[in-house]
Amino acid sequence: MKTASQLSKHTSSSPLAIIDQIVRDHNLDEGSAIVILQQIQAAFGYVGKPMLERVSQLTGIPASVLYSIVTFYTQFRLEPVGENFIQVCHGTACHLAGAERISEVLQQETGVPEGKTSADGKFTVKKVACLGCCSLGPVVTVNEETFARVTPDKARQMIKEKRASCQCGHSNAEEVATID
């Protein structure tokens, strides 16, 4: 989504300066707490506790209130996500089409339990309520890319490809070799 562009826009500034800027942009609006937190997440990929404290200092909204908002809405993440943020749609249509199986396969392949990030930072796998592509279920999104009519085989293949093309600096030589 906005992560990349937002980040590049702010790269020259320090993290705290970015937060300060976001808060300043919105502080005059009523009820901007959620918007501020959304923009922080867009810039950093997550909303960590020190960030909440900074926002609290600047806005006067108690950190506990901010924390209660972050934990209430499913969009917010308190921890950074993996390089490949995989969302598996579990809407009704996708459920009927076998989303449960896809989640199982993705967990097996990545070795990450639901909602968590792998130790190497490559994958985060998460269930989502509905992505709104119900006629094309099961639907999986990886970062901005959407995959329709995913089968267990396709899911497995997808993970292998993502692992091979991973940009996180770990050595991939071995994995690439096993795919071909």
């Binding site: 809407g91 249509a93 509905c130 709104g132 119900c134």
Partner: peptide, 11 residues
Amino acid sequence: DEGDPGAFMDR
């Protein structure tokens, strides 16, 4: 805020 899973009319 089309929250019902299985609905995509608004989108």
